[in-house]
């Protein structure tokens, strides 16, 4: 089993810098929830791990998988990892399955080309097993179905099945339930995490919902404006968030049982644009606890331990 380390990942498109500095570590067999508002660079980070960024993206930083650098790999080596060691499922299952091929075909090709199973009977047997594993009732009847004949929830199960068919060590799930009905969202998430446990794989779970991630994941990474701001155990994040942004996020969270009349406490101001040059802390413009140093200097942190990117947590307020 392999560890994933992302160190100072930055992604640029010309003048835009949507991913400025992302760091985290995901140990084998663990789950990490990546939480952040829309546009914070979660999907780009995930695509960078898959090596699926658009050609014009300029990437810097270090992506290390099981001690090997993903960036220095040849395209061939990269492809051996992609889909086989690291698999990914996407947000909208209705557009992510190929409309011209059957469910069976799309799973079969993974078993044939990625796992190298020669016998087609064997592949069918394995494929049906996997469809059963992801909770599809009567898999034989679905094998020859086309994606448009499935509901959203069923499609996402098929997408999970084809990602898991290659027995990956790490699964990246980029907002896998946002496009689905509320009623099936939780079912899919529970399925995902139970499969993770059963297979002992690592899971990188991208979401904008801090409470869901906190409930399901081992660790949480909070992202903002293309930076990772805080990385901590899920329990710690929910109970005692360290970074002012995480604190604000939690305060803005709707409370269970709270009356509908409750006002959400929103964070004033807006997220800096990807093209903006930021010298100090990325959150400074909206931070209630900001002080003079915050706009001059960027708070530092290190990637391998739990961290939070704020001067306050380091008791550095007085220095300088």
């Amino acid at each position: 089993m392999k560890n994933l380390i992302v160190d100072h990942l930055s992604i640029r498109f010309g003048a835009a810098n949507p991913v400025r500095d992302v760091c985290f570590q995901l140990d084998a067999g663990r789950s990490l929830g990546v939480v952040g508002e829309s546009g914070s660079g979660k999907s780009l980070t995930a695509l960078a791990l898959m090596g699926l960024l658009p050609e014009q993206a300029q990437v810097s930083g270090e992506l290390s998988w099981g001690g090997r650098s993903l960036q220095t790999m040849t395209e061939r080596e990269r492809r051996a990892v992609r889909g086989r060691e690291i698999a990914m499922i996407f947000q909208d299952p209705m557009t992510c399955l190929n409309p011209s091929f059957t469910v069976g075909f799309q799973i079969d090709e993974v078993l044939k080309l990625r796992l190298g199973i020669r016998s087609s009977a064997e592949r069918r047997k394995r494929g049906l097993e996997i469809l059963g594993d992801v909770g599809i009732p009567a898999p034989e009847t679905r094998w020859d179905a086309y994606p448009h004949q499935l509901s959203g929830g069923m499609s996402q199960r098929v997408a999970i099945a084809q990602a898991l068919a290659s027995e990956p060590e790490l699964l990246i799930a980029d907002e896998p339930t946002t496009a689905l009905d509320v009623t099936v969202q939780m079912q899919i998430l529970e399925l995902l995490f139970s499969l993770k446990k059963k297979r002992g794989m690592s899971l990188l779970f991208v979401t904008h919902d801090l409470s869901v991630a906190g409930r399901l994941c081992d660790d949480i990474l909070v992202m903002y404006a293309g930076q990772s701001l805080e990385l901590a155990a899920a329990g710690a994040i929910l109970k005692s968030p360290q970074h002012p942004y995480t604190q604000a996020l939690l305060a803005a969270r709707p409370h269970l049982g709270g009356g509908s009349g409750d006002r959400l406490k929103t964070i004033p101001g807006s997220v800096p644009r990807a093209t903006e040059q930021i010298r100090g802390c990325v959150f400074a413009a909206r931070c209630e606890k900001k002080f003079d140093r915050c706009e001059r200097e960027a708070p530092a942190f290190d990637a391998t331990s739990k961290f939070n990117r704020c001067f306050l947590s380091r008791n550095e307020r007085g220095s300088l």
Binding site: M50, L52, R79, A80, V81, R82, G83, R84, A87, M88, F90, D92, T95, C96, L97, N98, P99, E109, V110, L113, R114, A159, Q162, A163, S166
Partner: peptide, 14 residues
């Protein structure tokens, strides 16, 4: 540019 082509890439197909 379709999502399912990205999926095919994500499966590591040639």
């Amino acid at each position: 540019g379709e999502d399912y082509v990205r999926t095919a890439r994500a499966k590591g197909l040639s």
